[in-house]
Write a protein that binds this DNA or RNA. Structure first.
Lengths: 235, 235
DNA sequence: AAAGATATGGCACTGAGTGCCATCAAATAA
DNA sequence: TTATTTGATGGCACTCAGTGCCATATCTTT
């Protein structure tokens, strides 16, 4: 039982590099810290740094590769009966969960990325990979649908935007409050826009009104929707 | 009349650097071309390159600064009576217009960015600035609205995603077809999702088929839309 | 023509990232 | 136990992007 069940025994050097890097980044700033400084503090060879991190920027985001893999697996494990929009919203929650597991670390990193342009750019590339993963999933789910790829791209972008809205708000607050609740609220906004329904709790078998719509065939669909919605009172 | 009315007499060196850079990028590839190669071909000093372009990547996107400034001005010139969503859609069209003004250049650049990871990342930072510009505008327009900033972020992301969907499709096709029409279609998808109305043009007085829909009041709107669309035959 | 402002070139320097090889440790074969 | 292989690490030299500094050229102003 000495060795952990997961393969978490390996990253001794990796962890010490991350620790040394963040200590220096917070002390003197990212750009004022060289890779040589990091490896000296960590007591390892310079060459080893680039074995564990392809670039200096990668050491700032050590957990995203894992999270991206988790998201990919999560989406691959979804059933056809799942609502695609709900599914990608849940996938986005994985990212928020990763951030909220280490609040202080996340907040420190957030401050770094706000100040350093290069890190902001790097973060964009990370976000882009999440968005692409969600978009790929939606594309396959909506392969038969008209404008499926357009819809997939737009919904993926919206989900990411909503998630980041909640995430950044939480990070700006210094890690106070309930990040899950915030992301739920933001994602619900997106889900309600595109997801069929999700019916919340089933209204059960009450007597229902019947709606009759009469329109010209050429009337654009959005107008029908709008009229019905407003006549029903924004339900 | 010798000097042009615009300040377009200056960029003699800038243009020659762009020309030399792209010639080499297309010949041997981006990463196989050093800045020294570029300045040698252009016949200028190495130091001058970095005066005109902060980094090697910037020479690949020489027109975005101008376009971003145009977009900012365009949004600043909007009236309170404008529909915010329509406005940001129109702003996005400025970007497509810039691309479509130099089809061959845009397509060549697109191929480069597909192959070189560093350029893809750089492009993300450019796209982010457009998205931020749109988001800032929407935020001020919706400052009083409930969840105004969330909505602003999501709509800005959706507009950018729809625009890029059309743009990339056009670029992948090698610059064939009508890029404006494609972006119109994609942006209309977004506008119809969020913008109140815009009323298009009045459908005029032809005889039209009439569609009758009968449904329960609780039936979700998406289901109505879906049924009607499919019954109308994907028109 | 003199003086100043601006654009350009040259040069040396820092620092990220890579390729190559030597070395060391642990696992494995004999 | 000893030899061998394998993988992880360190050291070194190299390329190249990007910067600071200064000299020089070109253009403008007076």
């Amino acid at each position: 039982m000495g060795t952990a069940s997961t393969n978490s025994t390996k990253p001794a050097m990796r962890d010490s590099l991350i620790a040394a890097a963040f200590q220096l980044f917070l002390e003197r700033g990212y750009e004022q810290t060289t890779v040589d400084d990091i490896v000296t503090l960590a007591g390892v060879g310079r060459r080893s740094f680039f074995r564990y991190f392809p670039s200096k920027e990668d050491v700032v985001f050590p957990d995203h590769e894992q999270c991206l893999a988790d998201m990919t697996r999560f989406l691959a494990a979804s059933a056809d009966s799942d609502d695609p929009v709900v599914r990608v919203c849940d996938a986005a929650r994985l990212v928020m969960r990763m951030y909220s597991e280490n609040p202080t670390f996340s907040v420190q990193r957030y401050r770094l990325t706000r100040e350093v342009a290069g890190l902001r750019t790097y973060e964009l590339s990370v976000v882009w990979r999440y968005e692409k993963t969600l978009g790929d999933y939606l594309r396959t789910r909506w392969a038969d649908r008209r404008d499926g790829t357009l819809r997939a791209n737009v919904v993926a972008a919206a989900v990411v935007a909503a998630h980041n809205h909640a995430l950044r708000h939480w990070l700006r607050s210094g890690g106070e409050g309930d990040p899950q609740a915030e992301v739920d609220r933001a994602l619900e906004f997106v889900r309600a826009t595109w997801s069929p329904d999700a019916a919340s709790e089933a209204p059960a078998e009450e007597t229902e009104d019947v709606v009759v719509v009469i329109t010209k065939r050429s009337t654009p669909m959005w107008r029908v929707v709008r009229e019905v919605e407003s006549s029903l009172g924004e339900g």
